[in-house]
Write a protein that binds this DNA or RNA. Structure first.
Lengths: 226, 226
DNA sequence: GCCACCATGTTTGGATCCAATTATCCATTT
DNA sequence: AAATGGATAATTGGATCCAAACATGGTGGC
């Protein structure tokens, strides 16, 4: 949550943070996996201390869980944890949408239409669709210009990202159709904050249903893996 | 956001984290103040590394802002920052209240009544009132048993705490009357999640109005201090 | 076969040190 | 008086080392 970035030459800590975060968010390290600082340090050619600091940051963000004297693990999420995060996201993105409806210009709406089009065009590639989906929501939530709100929304979205990736990989389709995003744009276009908030919250709640059901089914069948 | 606590023997990092956090949240260090790790290390009789790690955690939580090569400062908040945090809090506590309304028992409601009574009895002592107020909201938001939601709400509340302290100190009264909290209890008692959510959001939005106005007035008059 | 104990190896927390960067102070110039 | 430049002091990032804690594997007893 540091707002000071753009450091052309990345510090060792940021390198480590980025490396570990990208692995987790990209689903490459399953929940529960232990992260050994000396291994990361060796891969990156740095010492352990900046890796440790990166793990402190990632712990504060919820992506890893540091256990005293026993090291850090990738935070494992149960279906109800994912549900909780989706609900927090719905509340916060709803808030962002409320303000975005008041503030957005034709330019913003046009940009969102372009992004929705990109999502449509990626409908056969679930991973690409998810990337465009993230960009769409990022852009929409950045319209109010509230850095803390945006940062928190992004943090939550990152937390559940591996599970969306998994969903998309298993079903080879996104958990939500592109048309739904056009409905969000239409809601913003009304300039009615309450309506936009409701539309976005509902959108996220709806997406959550499929993902949570998937995770519950998966946990029930005790399939090994993430 | 580490859920693993209860460490009987606190690590050096936790000591440092607690020490710095308590100073900031208690309003003892104004926004913008530089935090020098070696000074904290000396006070606590530890080395600089755990203090640095504590600062990474506090940065991730938004209480401090680490600047590359220039050290950490207590995050300064402008009135609009405080407003943003209040709105995020309203969204998240509203969500917590929605679930609390469904889950709460007579015991929960009774406990909340006791806490509201405590607040009433502390009406002449704004600092004590604020403490009881925090306890009330903490308890209410813990009812749903959603650890991440509660942690985030507490984090946001901690961020704005120094400003509430300042408000209370200047006016020697809390920014909200005790009766309002009874209305929240009544809303929970209906078992209607939507109604409880609205009541809590509104409650926080209302509190925010006085505090933001105070901060804006203070910034306008350029009074020195926090 | 199971469990408890012990030895060994690995990892962790953090203390200390060093090089790089920034802040501060003082002298000189405009 | 204000601005600039250079020297010095303070602080920062992180590398390295050490002691403590934990994980793992082997052995002996039941």
């Amino acid at each position: 949550m540091s707002f000071i970035d753009g450091d052309a030459q990345q510090s060792a800590q940021q390198q480590a943070y980025r490396y570990i975060r990208d692995q987790i968010v990209g689903g490459a390290i399953p929940g529960g996996t232990k992260i050994v600082p000396s291994e990361i340090a060796e891969v990156l050619g740095i010492s352990r201390m900046p890796v440790r600091e990166a793990l402190v940051q990632l712990d504060a963000e919820g992506l890893v869980t540091n256990r005293p004297n026993r090291g850090a693990i990738v935070t494992p999420l149960k279906p109800e944890d994912v549900e909780e995060l989706f609900q927090m996201r719905a509340a916060l993105e709803g808030l962002a949408a409320r303000h975005a409806a008041v503030k957005c210009t034709e330019m913003h709406l046009h940009e969102l239409e372009i992004m929705a089009g990109r999502m449509d065009r990626a409908a056969d590639d679930a991973q690409l669709w998810l990337r465009h989906h993230d960009e769409f929501h990022d852009y929409m939530c950045s319209i109010p210009g509230r850095a803390r709100l945006l940062a928190e929304i992004r943090r939550i979205r990152a937390s559940v990202h591996p599970y969306l990736l998994l969903y998309n990989r298993v079903y080879d389709r996104p958990e939500m159709e592109g048309a739904e995003h056009r409905a969000l744009i239409d809601a913003l276009r009304t300039k009615n904050g309450t309506l936009a908030e409701r539309a976005v919250s509902h959108h996220i709640d709806t997406a959550a249903v499929s993902v949570i059901a998937f995770l519950r089914q998966r946990n029930g069948t005790k399939v090994a893996g993430l």
